[in-house]
Structure formats: C-alpha cells, structure tokens
C-alpha cells in the first residue's frame, strides 16, 4: 500500500469503500483492471474471491442467530409466517431507503426472494446470513458495496435476469407491461440507455401486452450491442432479435427526428 502514488491510493480507497475488499484483493483487482476502478470492480465480482470483505470475512459463524430471529419478528406479518408489503416498508424505512430504490432489488436478489414485496422467513434469514449481516446497522453499512454490484456487468446481468422472475405475478409466466416498464426504469436509471423513453413509449403505443422473458433478456443485449442510432442493427429479418425489438427499431427509424421538430418550432 505504501508504494502507491497519491492517485492510486485514492483509487484503492474508493475501491475498498465500494467492495469492502481487503488490501491484498484491492491491489490484485486494481492491477488486473489496469487501475480503472470500474474495471477493477468487474474483476472483483467476477473472480471467485473468498468472502473477503472486511465486514464479512470472518463473520459467518459469529452471526447472532437470535438477533436475526428478532429482526425477522420485527417485520413479520402478524397473520402469516412471512414478511409482506407492510413489513418490507418498515424494513426500507429502517434502512433509510426508498422502497422504489433499485437497491431493494439487489437486496431481494441476495435474499433470492421469489416475489416482489414478500420475503419468506427462510429467504430473509438465509439472505441476511449470506450477506453476513445480523443487524440493520450492518446491512446499512453494506449498502454502498451492494449498490456497486450494479456497476459490474456480470452482476448486473444476473440482477437483470432475476428482476424478471421477481416481477412476475404469482402463477403468471409473463411480466405485465406496467410492471416491466417500472422495473426497466429502475434498472436502467444508472446505465444511461438513451432510448429508454422511446422503448417505453413504443411498448405502450404498439404492444400493450405482457413482456416475454425472451424479450426481457434480449433487450439487455440490445442496449449493450446496438448503437443508439441503430446503425449497426441488421434488420433484414434474418437476425435473431425478438420481433418486438425489430419493430421497435422500425418505429425509431420511421419516427420523425426530435431535432427536426425543434428546428421547426424554433423558427
């Protein structure tokens, strides 16, 4: 650590703050990521490091099961053995987090929660254990590192994938359009996909039905691979993009350009 220059030290501190990694892993990841913090984070989450974050490295056995049980009881629904919407709301306010915050999606992902706004006892307790937390304070402290997971492409893909199942209403195979739109807005908020508004508008205008899992998954690839001007989109009908994406591209291409509209009104 001492041999690093000022800039590197700053980066290492930043990295540690985000991931909670120890010095050794921090150096390793930063070196592998060529001292770009984002890249290093990617390395950190994609490599199989032993749970080495400073808070969790040795905390496995030391978790206080009684405290966890107590915590669960705090949120549990009075009428059934699980946490329902009300309990989740309390959980959010204890964490000082907006229920609409994307971080709740990340937490639910760690909890392996099957349904939105619900945690079973097992999901909650095992989830907390896997995060190495037995108190609200510990979880609050961990929030920055959880938030950082969204910046790792690999993790994001998993979370994105999970978000679909999570958003399905019970007994349904597809996600309802309004839910899908809300979750997309949540997920893409930090990713700057310039076509997000167009996509949502297109779906409301021309589709107005549930979203299939295939479309959901392929959209992420689409946002990554296809330039916002669609110039590298091969629309000869032989590409394998879902038809909804084909139609979206067509919709965008046929849509009068916003800039022209501005020019016209500007006169």
């Amino acid at each position: 650590m001492n041999r690093l220059n000022k800039l590197q030290k700053d980066k290492a501190e930043q990295f540690k703050a985000i991931t909670g990694a120890n010095d050794k892993n921090t150096l390793h990841c930063l070196a592998a990521g060529q001292w770009v913090v984002e890249a290093a984070i990617e390395v950190f989450y994609t490599s199989a490091f032993p749970e080495s974050s400073s808070t969790a490295s040795t905390s496995g056995p030391r978790l206080d099961a009684a405290a966890l049980e107590q915590l669960y009881q705090r949120y549990r629904d009075p009428n059934s053995d699980q946490i329902l919407a009300e309990g989740v709301g309390q959980f959010c306010s204890d964490l000082n987090v907006d229920p609409e915050d994307v971080i709740m999606l990340v937490i639910s992902w760690h909890f392996r929660a099957a349904t939105m706004c619900e945690y079973s006892k097992q999901e909650f307790v095992d989830g907390m254990k896997s995060l190495g937390c037995d108190s609200i304070a510990a979880l609050t402290a961990k929030l920055p590192s959880l938030r950082a997971e969204l910046r790792s492409e690999g993790k994001f893909k998993e979370i994105y994938d999970y978000a679909y199942k999570f958003s399905c209403e019970k007994g349904q195979k597809c996600v309802q359009l309004d839910t899908a739109l809300a979750v997309w807005r949540l997920l893409f908020a930090g990713r700057q996909w310039p076509l997000l508004d167009d996509w949502c508008e297109f779906l409301v205008k021309h589709h107005n039905r549930a979203i299939s899992r295939d479309t959901w998954l392929q959209l992420l690839d689409f946002t990554k691979q296809i330039k916002p001007d669609m110039s590298n989109f091969d629309g000869d009908g032989m590409s394998a993009w879902p038809y909804l994406i084909d139609e979206f591209v067509e919709y965008i291409r046929e849509k009068p350009k916003d800039t022209e509209m501005v020019d016209l009104t500007g006169d």
Partner: peptide, 26 residues
C-alpha cells in the same frame, strides 16, 4: 413471413420447447 416465423419461435421459447444458447443468442 419471416416475422411470423420469428414470433412463433419466441412463442415456442415461451412454451419451453426451445431456448436460446447462453453464449450466442442467435
């Protein structure tokens, strides 16, 4: 129609007759 074929493929994915390859979605 190519598009119709595409829709049917997607429908079959939905019905779990087919799946996309994890590495190559084509």
């Amino acid at each position: 129609d190519f598009r119709l074929i595409k829709k049917r493929i997607e429908d079959l994915i939905q019905r779990e007759y087919l799946a996309r390859d994890e590495e190559n979605p084509n």
